[in-house]
Design a protein around this nucleic acid. Structure first.
Length: 350
DNA sequence: TACGCGTGGCT
DNA sequence: TAGCCAAGCGT
């Protein structure tokens, strides 16, 4: 297995500058630049950096602003600032020598599990699996692990460790990364080009691309809501929210969510008819506010409404007429107080 | 555990 | 074409 992988790696070895060195400084720099950044983007930045600072000693003299200048356009500028800090730490605490112990190296700012493992395996052959996005994907397919849980990461780590038993740790890490970025792509697993396809558990399922399961960031839903402000003399119509609903037992203006294909006016007419049994004329818009909750957000637009005909009949919900001064236990208090003040202004102005 | 961090390329 | 994605880390 490892033999086929390493053979493939040698045949397909890419012409990348940092592949031609075992200098920990250069490997480290390349790994920092490669964070969430594609190889082709990194190459020119890497070259100009090494041209200006060929050795680690050269960077130790550098000012942060000069390093940031070289980083301009690469993004994630904290990578550069952390690298500078780490270099200073090494100058002060490590006699200017890049630590070759995992424990020491990982303490440096901007150095985590991945970078420390990658650098130390490549520069000094230590058996440290470097679990980047590519390797996690490749191994989750080989071992047929859907979920990238801490537990499965450990299994993946230990599995690669076994492959490293006979050495070549750096090559194994790089080979797996290349395999992930060239062959075992997220949405296109080119299994016919893969040197280890016969050892792959996900190929057997017929859907290797479904490994690992991508956890999509759940976007909080956003609802468009309309409310109607109906008043009689100096009192406003409000409804009590059902207990089982969100914010149940609190008062609100009649209204509700806009359904698919409805505009605001149609939705509001429908909601008021359903909730109060009233047919209304929708007058002018009073205001529109956004409320953000932890799990969703709503865009609430309020309109002044006047009753056309029919009598107020509430079926499922209680209602009451209240004065402005009586507002208490209101759902969406902030927005509704804004609406009240806007409305009062309107009434004063006729 | 989940998000912010930057930019360019891809579909 | 508007999201995704690309050799992570810090908080």
């Amino acid at each position: 297995m490892v033999q086929s992988l390493l053979r493939w790696y040698k045949i397909n070895k890419r012409d990348i500058p940092w592949r031609q060195t075992k200098d920990p400084y250069k490997i480290w720099l390349s790994e920092v630049m490669l964070q969430q950044t594609q190889v082709e983007t990194v190459i020119p930045y890497y070259k100009q950096w090494i041209k200006k600072y060929p050795t680690f000693t050269d960077v130790m003299q550098a000012k942060e602003s000069d390093l940031l200048k070289l980083w301009e356009g690469l993004g994630y500028y904290n990578r550069c600032r952390n690298f500078h800090k780490a270099v200073n730490n090494i100058a002060n605490d490590h006699d200017g020598k890049i630590p070759d112990l995992m424990g020491d190296f990982k303490k440096l700012p901007g150095v985590g599990d991945y970078i420390s493992s990658a650098v130390l395996s490549i520069s000094s052959g230590q058996n440290l699996p470097a679990l980047d996005g590519n390797i996690i994907r490749v191994l989750s397919r080989v071992l047929r692990k859907k979920k990238v849980s801490p537990h499965n990461r450990k299994i993946i780590h230990n599995h690669i460790l076994k492959w490293m038993k006979y050495g070549h740790a750096g090559d194994i890490n790089e080979a797996l990364m290349d395999l992930g970025s060239i062959v075992c792509r997220p949405n296109q697993a080119h299994c016919h080009e893969c040197p280890i396809t016969e050892f792959c558990g996900a190929v057997a399922t017929g859907n290797p691309e479904t490994y690992p399961k991508i956890l999509t960031k759940k976007k909080t839903p956003e609802y468009d809501v309309v409310t109607g402000i109906i008043w009689k003399n100096d009192k406003f119509l409000i409804m009590l929210r059902e207990n089982k609903k969100h914010l149940g037992g609190l008062w609100e203006f009649p209204g509700g969510k806009i359904k698919n294909g409805e505009n605001k006016t149609k939705a509001l007419e429908r909601e008021i008819r359903e909730e109060c049994g009233l047919n209304v004329d929708i007058e002018n818009q009073i205001g529109s506010f956004k409320h953000v909750y932890s799990h969703f957000s709503i865009n609430m637009t309020s309109f002044h409404c006047t009753a056309k005909n029919g009598s107020l009949v509430t079926t499922q919900q209680k209602h009451q007429w209240i004065k402005l001064s009586q507002i208490d236990n209101f759902a969406f208090p902030k927005a509704n107080h804004k609406i009240f003040s806007l409305m009062n202004e309107m009434r004063r102005n006729g």
